[in-house]
Computed example of a mutant assay.
Amino acid sequence: MEPSTRRILLGRVHGAFGVRGELKLESFTDPPNAIFRYQPWILRDAQGRERELSGARGRLTAKGIVATFPDVADRDAADALRGTEVWAPRSALPPPKPGEYYWVDLEGLRVVNREGVDFGRVSYLFSTGANDVLVAEGERERMIPFLQPDYVVSIDFDNGVVTVDWDPEF
């Protein structure tokens, strides 16, 4: 995907909250209520259908984010959105601070080890709770802990390369 069309997954709808059409919303932003800054959103349901949404509002509660969407007026409509993903264009987010990266910016970069062995390209990243993991797909899939500088030695956006300290046989 071209950088201009890349998207960031900001959150996910977990279902209805109460009977007035409010929704339980899981936010992947920090802080969680920052999700509302990056509208309009692209909502993607489980079948892959997408629509744009503007005007969502919400509040942070002890149990997470409670949101209202302009076109959701009752519990049934809110519950119908369960599992819907909330996306935003990468361009809607502020630039990362020095030494920080949006995962989507790493996707597609070549991955090589210190000896120059090509591991393919960054397919995606995920969190295990203990640490993040970079998945490189080439002749096979490799899962490399995203720990700098232990395993991820450098990220060179100009040349499109992530250098890792990783055994090609592992």
Rank of each mutant, 00 (worst) to 15 (best):
T163M: 05
G11S: 07
G138D: 02
L109I: 06
T163W: 02
R75T: 10
W87L: 14
S123I: 04
T61R: 06
D118S: 10
R75Q: 14
G160K: 12
D156M: 11
F146R: 07
S4H: 14
E107L: 07
S123T: 12
R114G: 15
L106R: 09
G58M: 04
R20G: 11
L53C: 10
F119A: 01
E100Q: 13
L109A: 03
I42G: 03
K97N: 14
V13Q: 00
D132F: 15
L109N: 03
P94M: 03
G120N: 00
E26R: 13
E85H: 13
S123M: 11
Y124A: 12
T5K: 09
L106F: 07
R6Q: 15
R49S: 11
D74G: 00
L109V: 02
I42Q: 06
R142K: 12
G55H: 04
V153R: 14
Q148E: 14
S4R: 15
F69C: 05
K24N: 13
H14P: 05
D150C: 08
D71K: 03
V66E: 03
L93Q: 02
I155D: 03
W87Q: 11
E100M: 13
V152R: 05
G18Y: 03
W87G: 12
S27H: 00
R7L: 03
W166V: 09
F69V: 11
T163N: 08
N159M: 12
P3T: 11
T5S: 13
F36K: 01
D76K: 15
E22V: 08
V111S: 02
V13F: 08
L93A: 12
P145E: 11
G129L: 00
R82S: 09
R110I: 06
T163P: 05
G138R: 04
A77K: 13
G11Q: 10
V72W: 12
R75P: 03
V112Q: 14
E26S: 11
A73R: 15
D132A: 15
E22M: 10
L93H: 04
D118G: 09
V135K: 04
D118P: 08
G83F: 02
T68Q: 15
V135L: 03
G55P: 01
S27A: 05
L93T: 12
A78L: 08
R20I: 13
R37Y: 10
V164R: 00
E22Q: 14
G138T: 04
G18K: 04
G83K: 04
Q148P: 11
R12G: 06
R82K: 13
G55M: 08
A88R: 02
S123V: 07
V66L: 00
G48A: 01
N131V: 13
E26W: 07
A130N: 13
A67F: 06
V152G: 02
V164Y: 00
R59H: 13
R7S: 07
W87I: 12
V164H: 02
P32Y: 05
R110S: 10
F119N: 06
F146S: 01
D71L: 05
T84P: 05
R49C: 07
V72Y: 09
P32G: 04
E137N: 11
D74V: 00
F146E: 02
P149A: 09
L134Q: 01
S4F: 15
N131S: 14
A56Q: 10
L106E: 00
P70C: 06
V133H: 01
P3Q: 06
Y124H: 14
S4C: 11
G58H: 03
R12H: 01
V112T: 11
W87T: 09
